[in-house]
Every structure is written in structure tokens, then in C-alpha cells.
């Protein structure tokens, strides 16, 4: 489903990773682990098209998306610090991707309501993003990405900063939700327990470069 083929990325004169390759089957959930600074987030940004490649190709299915801008790749991403739109309500945040695709309101609204229900935030629709706790904001970020039905979902340390019980509960919810929807997921974390709990396969990013 997702093929990262022989990709290299530079930051100025520094090479972040060299000739890196990774392959995911449809519906597979892979966790990328590695120490800080090993390029985990940079790889996600490169897959999403937010970071230019020095070389290599990226495929979603059979489609080569290397030269496509981010918004045409069909790849969703949940950012480490959520990046919710503070001028929009919870409902509007989740509806964002559907609204910009001009999906009619009567189709859009039930889809968003269902998604909010799925992440356990059915009654939060009118709240502002400022009124959310860390866990709630994370659920909104996940719902916002999933409602767009991306071919691939990228999770950048999605549970960082959440403590004990909340972390465990959200991890379980996320695992159930992603498997139920059969989404292909690349998950970045530095927490091995979280990786074991969530993914089908754990990959150390340092072993992906040739």
C-alpha cells in the first residue's frame, strides 16, 4: 500500500537519512522507533510531502506521489501537538477536510457526527479547541484525519505528553479504531510498549537505510 523507495533527505548540508526503504501492506500498522534525532518525524513529513526529498520515490498503491503536493497525496497525518484550528469548533475541525472538498452539508454532517461518536466526543461538537483536555484534543486530531478517509495515516508520537491511565485508554481506543477501519498506518514513537500495543510490526528506523 505504501512504498518508500530508496529515499534520502537533507537538512541544509546534513543528510538526515540515506537511501531509506520501507514497505507497508494495505491495512498494516507499522511502528517506527529510534532515538531522538534519528529522523522519524522527518520521514513522516517526507511521506506526507511536507519535506522535500534529496532522492528516491514514494508510492501509495501503484501511484507515484513523489512529485505531488501534500494536498493531492491522500495521506493524512496526526501531528505530535495536534495542530487543531483554534478559530473552528470541534465539529468544524473534524468537518474541515469534507468541507474543503465541497461535500454537501447533508452528507457531511452525519459523517462528522458519526466520527465524533466513534472517538467518544459526541457531545463535544460545539466546544472550542481551547476547552479540550490533552486527551480530548488528541481524539479530535485523530477524528479530523480519519474522516477524510486517507489511503495512509501517519501518526507522529500521537500519545506523547499524555499520562498513565489516559495514555493507556487512548492507546486501546486508537488500536481498536484503526483496526476497525482497516487504515494503513505509520506510527512514530519512542515508547516500545506503545509500539507493541498498537502495531503489527515494529521497525527501527536506523535499520531501514542501506
Amino acid at each position: 500500500m505504501l512504498t518508500v523507495d530508496d529515499v534520502s533527505v537533507d537538512f541544509g548540508t546534513n543528510r538526515i537519512f540515506d537511501h531509506l526503504s520501507l514497505k507497508l501492506d494495505a491495512g498494516e500498522l507499522v511502528s517506527l522507533v529510534g532515538p531522538s534525532g534519528s529522523g522519524k518525524t522527518t520521514l513522516l513529513r517526507a511521506i506526507a510531502g511536507l519535506q522535500p526529498l534529496a532522492s528516491g520515490q514514494i508510492y501509495v498503491g501503484e501511484r507515484n506521489v513523489t512529485d505531488l503536493p501534500t494536498y493531492r497525496r491522500g495521506i493524512g497525518m496526526v501531528f505530535q501537538d495536534n495542530q487543531l484550528f483554534s478559530h473552528l469548533s470541534v465539529f468544524e475541525n473534524v468537518a474541515y477536510a469534507l468541507r474543503i472538498k465541497h461535500m454537501p452539508k447533508e452528507i457531511r454532517q452525519p459523517l462528522v457526527a458519526d466520527m465524533l461518536k466513534l472517538v467518544g466526543l459526541a457531545s463535544f461538537d460545539k466546544r472550542t479547541t481551547m476547552q479540550l483536555s490533552g486527551g480530548e484534543a488528541k481524539r479530535v486530531a485523530v477524528a479530523r484525519s480519519l474522516v477524510a478517509e486517507p489511503s495512509v495515516l501517519l501518526l507522529d508520537e500521537p500519545l506523547t505528553g499524555l499520562d498513565g491511565e489516559l495514555h493507556a485508554r487512548l492507546l486501546l481506543d486508537l488500536s481498536v479504531l484503526l483496526r476497525k477501519r482497516g487504515t494503513t498506518v505509520v506510527h512514530v514513537t519512542h515508547d516500545l510498549d506503545e509500539a507493541r500495543e498498537l502495531s503489527d510490526r515494529i521497525v527501527d528506523i536506523r535499520l531501514l537505510s542501506q
Binding site: A48, Y71, G76, F79, F85, Y96
Partner: peptide, 16 residues
Amino acid sequence: PLLNDAASTLGASPSK
């Protein structure tokens, strides 16, 4: 700029 990145991963073009 991360907000723009987020919107971009949700399918929004620069003008949108």
C-alpha cells in the same frame, strides 16, 4: 506553519 501542514494533509490547496 505546522497548521498549514495539517490543513495540507487534509487535502487543502494553498489557496484554500
